[in-house]
Design a protein around this nucleic acid. Structure first.
Length: 484
RNA sequence: AGUCCCUUCGUCUAGCGGUCUAGGACGUCGCCCUUUCACGGCGAAAACACGGGUUCGAUUCCCGUAGGGAUCACCA
């Protein structure tokens, strides 16, 4: 990209960008901002670009940049073109500041930090708005060699109205704004300068960002006008709040997206769907595919008020996507978790078992953690552990049912769900028991728990040898019940 | 403090002057299905912040109040 790319030969009608600062991890709010930018660009057949705002050298880190890229990749928000690293463009930013200095739209300010601090203290004491008072605005007698910053000579009268695509028309009097610093005394650009210059050079047509930037937009517009550049359209989306209505914090889920993937075991499409529905709606639609989202997304449908993050609903949405997900994909996803829990590597046989049981398993899980832990009993080696519920079931089982059931099952030639169930029902009938009185002890013996997927499906998947073995194990631990 | 923004069930939202005795989803509760737990199905409770206008008629338009949020840097 050239230093000043005004050429726009084949400039797309819509160019959006996601511009995170790599000072932390990509959090959920940032992910939503990225999603809206992505969707809007794709909806209009335009471009979605990524810019890393790393001008804060002290706080920007490589791991943070990697985390941002990792998060966007996981969510599959594919950006167009090369990633723009803001810091590398510092010379261009300085060039613009100096250009403004030359044409009179900016000036040197020699006020020291201490000086400005006392100015603010006085304003605070007088209960006046704290703004730079423009003391160097019309002076050119700066001390030789003294450090200075370059400030924008912003209009002081009149007002500016931004037709925000989300917030609607917003007007602010120029008197409310002060002359912002463009270039610091060390020659580095401020964020305000850098964003405007980069957005212009990247050909950004729509600035979609958190509404914490709404106030900044007016200052940035003054700079854009001073440069006589085309003005982008703005869309300031409300920030996400925690369940208690307060700003999102770690307690609420302002975690890196990696936490949603790794710790919570969520699916990227579910996180995307949830984020999309947070502050945006399309009739009664809840589960919305990427393609539909692109077709339907419009900034005018984005709500103006902040919405609260609801983990329960996220889990629910994730559960729906989990049930619709491909079984083989889920097997792959839970493999590491299962291996860790089991303390051993997963074999092909294990994989096969997981694949066969996945349809049953996923109905009982809303995230990958649940899915993995729910699958464990299939893969444990005998004798499998019994939880409290299972122990109680075995202790209160009608005398002899387990042994009788074992005998019945052992006589089955066709080891199938249907055959297993038929024998169990027959046994219950002859002994005058309800099916549950037979099935529950069996469930305990075979799964080690009082809750599990369908018992006969489980036994069919486990196979004759393993099933019978587990029943034998249970029989061994049971106190000798008055024989027959 | 000032400036700016926002306000429909607990939560996310639909609604864009009459179709609202306000719809959907999550959550909650009940019932059904059923060998357990889930899934699934059915049903219930649950909201237009308040006060003024405008209008034949306001959830929908305007103003005020209250509440919430954003913002005060040589941070981004």
């Amino acid at each position: 990209m050239g230093a000043s790319s005004d050429s726009g030969a084949q400039t797309p009608a819509v160019v959006t960008r996601f511009a995170p600062s790599p000072t932390g991890f990509l959090h959920i709010g940032g992910a939503r901002t990225a999603l809206f930018n992505y969707l809007f660009a794709r909806h209009h057949g335009g471009q979605f670009q990524l810019r890393i705002e790393d001008t804060d050298r002290a706080r920007s880190t490589e791991p943070a940049i990697a985390a941002i890229i990792d998060g966007l990749t996981w969510l599959d928000f594919e950006w167009d073109g090369e990633i723009v690293h803001q810091f590398a463009r510092a010379p261009r930013h300085a060039q613009v500041a100096n250009h403004l200095l030359v044409n009179g739209h900016a000036y040197r300010c020699y006020a020291t930090a201490e000086e400005l601090e006392t100015m603010r203290a006085e304003q605070r004491a007088a209960k006046l708005p704290m703004r730079y008072d423009g003391r160097w605005r019309d002076r050119t007698d700066g001390p030789d060699g003294a450090p200075f910053v370059i400030r924008l000579k912003a209009p002081q009268t009149g007002s500016v109205t931004i037709d925000d695509l989300v917030q609607g028309p917003v007007t602010v009097a120029n008197a409310e704004l002060d002359d912002m610093v463009l270039l610091r005394s060390d020659g580095t650009p401020t964020y305000m300068l850098a964003v405007v210059v980069d957005d212009h050079d990247m050909g950004v047509t729509h600035v979609i960002r958190g509404d914490d930037h709404l106030n900044n937009a007016f200052r940035q517009l003054a700079l854009i006008r001073a440069m006589n550049w085309p003005e982008p359209q703005y869309a300031h989306i409300p920030l996400i709040h925690g369940a208690d209505g307060a700003k999102l914090s770690k307690r609420h889920g302002a975690l890196g997206v990696d936490a949603y993937r790794d710790e919570m075991g969520l699916l990227p499409e579910a996180v995307e769907n949830y984020l999309l529905r947070l502050g945006w709606g399309h009739g009664d639609d809840e589960i919305i595919s990427r393609a539909q989202a692109i077709a339907w997304f419009d900034l005018k449908d984005v709500g103006r008020g902040p919405s609260r993050f609801d983990m329960k609903k996220l889990e629910s949405v994730n559960g729906q996507y989990l049930r619709a997900a491909d079984d083989a994909r889920l097997v792959t996803l839970i493999e590491p978790r299962v291996a860790t829990a089991l303390g051993r590597a997963i074999t092909d046989s294990d994989r096969n078992t997981l694949q066969c049981s996945m349809a049953e398993l996923k109905k009982r899980a809303s995230n990958l953690n649940d899915l993995a832990s729910g699958a464990l009993f299939f893969l444990r080696t005998r004798p499998i552990p019994m939880d409290d519920g299972a122990t109680k079931l075995l202790a209160s089982a009608p005398p002899g049912v387990l042994a009788d059931a074992r005998t019945q099952f052992a006589g089955i030639n066709d080891w199938s769900t249907a055959a297993l169930e038929e024998r169990a029902r027959a046994l219950a009938e002859t002994r005058g028991l309800k099916l549950g009185q037979v099935a529950q002890p069996l469930r305990a013996a075979v799964t080690g728990s009082s809750q599990s997927p369908g018992l006969f499906e489980v036994m069919a998947i486990l196979g004759r040898e393993e099933t019978l073995g587990r029943i034998d194990d249970a029989l061994d631990t049971m106190p000798a019940q008055g024989a027959n």
